[in-house]
């Protein structure tokens, strides 16, 4: 049912897009068929897929690295109160600083290549994942902890069976935020360092007013966002299966 509604909304959005395109003229807002044509042309020229590949490497590299670092670090901060209390103020400070501010510094150290791009994505994606993981551990149900204490469950067992599963919904929320920021930073990285990937094409077509091609790239980016969000939704459904019964 929802799927049907979704398709209906999609049709409505495309209709609206078309209508606006007719109103303001195809030069500024290309019509859907013109955009489709541009997409076919970009594909035929072999420009779209390599750019997509570049962007995916940047995004997935930085995002993956952020996950690998943020989750264990967040768990560590949550599980050992002195570590968490000591570091949280710095984590929050770093999270509040616009990460774009670091781009010149990153270029100095890592250059303009893929390493710098991945690092920019990593820096953006890591904070929400880290902060959410930490919050998830801190939000552990005190009553369950007392229950664990009363059956003399060890620290490891308590962490594995109570704290960690309880933090999963928080971690997934963090992964979602991290993916969004990671995708934004992918484009930022491609604009501020060596101009490549989907971000590079975006700049190219935007600056030369080739709006149909420009729209293709914007839609591509939106599709990546939707795919990542869906993937996370499926992961959540699997991991938080116990909620379905209630």
């Amino acid at each position: 049912m929802i799927a049907l509604y979704r398709v209906l909304v999609l049709v409505g959005l495309i209709g609206l897009w078309w209508l606006i395109s007719l109103q303001v003229g195809g030069v500024i807002i290309p019509s859907p068929p013109a955009t489709l044509g541009a997409a076919q042309m970009l594909l035929a020229e072999g420009r779209l897929l390599p750019a997509l590949g570049d962007s995916l490497i940047t995004f997935l590299g930085g995002y993956g690295l952020a996950i690998i670092v943020a989750i264990p670090f967040g768990l560590l901060m949550g599980a050992f109160a002195p570590v968490g209390k000591t570091l949280e103020v710095y984590v929050f400070a770093l999270a509040a600083t616009p990460r774009v501010a670091f781009v010149p510094l990153i270029i100095v150290f890592l250059g303009l290549g893929v390493e710098a791009k991945i690092f920019i994505v990593f820096l953006g994606a890591i904070m929400p994942i880290l902060i959410n993981t930490y919050a998830g551990v801190l939000a552990t149900d005190r009553d369950l902890l007392e229950m664990a204490q009363s059956v003399r469950a060890g620290r490891v067992e308590t962490f594995r069976r109570i704290v960690l599963p309880g933090a999963v919904p928080f971690i997934i929320a963090g992964l979602r935020l991290g993916a969004t920021i990671g995708l934004i930073n992918t484009v930022v990285a491609e604009l501020y360092t060596a101009v490549r990937g989907l971000g590079g094409l975006l700049a190219l077509y935007g600056n030369t007013f080739r709006m149909a091609e420009y729209f293709v790239i914007v839609l591509m980016l939106a599709c990546i966002g939707v795919l990542v969000a869906e993937g996370l939704r499926l992961a959540e459904k699997r991991l938080v299966r116990w909620k379905s019964g209630s």
Partner: peptide
């Protein structure tokens, strides 16, 4: 009750036997 919401009945009871 204080049951573990993400553990089934069997695992909830088993948790009391870990030590």
């Amino acid at each position: 009750f204080r049951l573990i919401p993400w553990a089934n009945v069997r695992d909830n009871i088993d948790f009391a036997l870990t030590s």
